[in-house]
């Protein structure tokens, strides 16, 4: 067999040439994905003078850890923001996953009489939304959440798109007969949900959990709208603020030059990049833990039967 290997290749394997091309292509793609981040790390370690003089360089003229020392000097705010971000992400994801799965499970069961109405209700919000101002009024004036940590969590808990995904997932992957047998054995609805549905749907749940985690971690807009108290500013919002302040300075040079002392505390390019590194790290580190589920979860949309 071996001597004939050339002619009768294993049909499961790629032709060596194709293999090389695909490997190179995927390699380029992988580098394109990871390169910006490596570049950011390099810039964060470049000395400020070198940036002013030569712009961003792959191999900078002078290295420096000034940017990280600067971040260390503002560690009070940084740790605080880290804490807020972590709290919001963990609690937010937990609440969000629970609410979405509850809702999706209910409208996925044929026994539930109003499931059409509630499906439409969720679906409706995907097509029409109230807009920014009504949202703001509800959050600040009805719920009075302004300057509380809940303003960062609650507006993002429900997401119609995830509800529809989960509903489809429950309908396709959890067969009615399993639930029926559980019911015959005398399990309550809660028990069915947490001990049967939940483990069976883990891939789907992990997928929306990952989406939520990313959503909460990267969100800065809620903080922009609802948070004035510096103690409640999450990490991404802190980063956005610095960027927005730099932009403001550029556009209002006259104010900036007259009130120099006000803006002297705004960090420079390298410090900005160092903050990006610090803000991205936790998400990059936690990703592999989700990946396993993520891959199986992605087939949700595909037809299974």
């Amino acid at each position: 067999m071996k001597t004939m290997g050339k002619k009768y290749r294993d049909p499961q394997r790629l032709h060596p040439v194709v293999n090389i091309i695909v490997t190179v292509l995927l390699g380029i793609l992988a580098i394109a994905c990871i390169f910006p981040f490596i570049y950011v790390v390099i810039i964060s370690l470049t000395s400020e003078q070198s940036i002013v003089k030569n712009g961003f360089q792959l191999i900078p003229e002078a290295w420096s850890s000034d940017a990280y020392q600067y971040l260390w000097s503002m560690r009070g705010q940084l740790f605080r923001s880290y804490g807020v971000s972590i709290f919001v992400t963990v609690v937010g994801t937990a609440i969000s996953v629970l609410m979405i799965t509850f809702y999706a499970y209910a409208i996925s069961r044929p026994q539930f009489q109003y499931r059409r109405f509630f499906t439409m209700l969720a679906f409706f919000t995907m097509l029409f939304s109230g807009g920014l101002v009504p949202m703001y009024i509800v959050v600040t004036q009805f719920l009075e959440l302004k300057d509380t940590v809940w303003a960062l969590i609650l507006p993002l808990t429900m997401n119609a798109f995830y509800i529809i995904i989960m509903r489809t997932f429950f309908m396709k992957s959890v067969s009615e007969s399993i639930l029926e047998s559980a019911r015959i054995d005398g399990a309550s609805e809660w028990r069915i949900f947490f001990q049967i549905i939940f483990p069976l749907s883990l891939p789907g749940i992990a997928t929306i959990a990952l989406f939520s985690t990313l959503g909460y971690w990267n969100d800065w807009f809620q903080a922009l709208l609802y948070i004035n108290d510096p103690n409640l500013v999450p990490l991404q919002s802190l980063l956005m603020k610095i960027e927005a302040n730099l932009e403001f300075m550029r556009e209002n040079m006259d104010v900036a030059n007259m009130q120099q002392s006000l803006f002297s505390t705004i960090p420079q390019e390298s410090a900005k990049m160092a903050m990006v590194v610090i803000a991205t790290l936790p998400i990059a580190v936690s990703y592999p833990f989700f990946q396993k589920y993520f891959i199986s979860g992605l087939t949700i949309g595909g037809v299974k039967e």
Partner: peptide, 20 residues
């Protein structure tokens, strides 16, 4: 209450439009 330079435009506009 101070609102940061970069946030100012958007935030103040939403506050005014919402009738806060």
């Amino acid at each position: 209450t101070q609102i940061d330079w970069g946030d100012w435009d958007q935030k103040s506009q939403v506050m005014i439009n919402s009738g806060e």
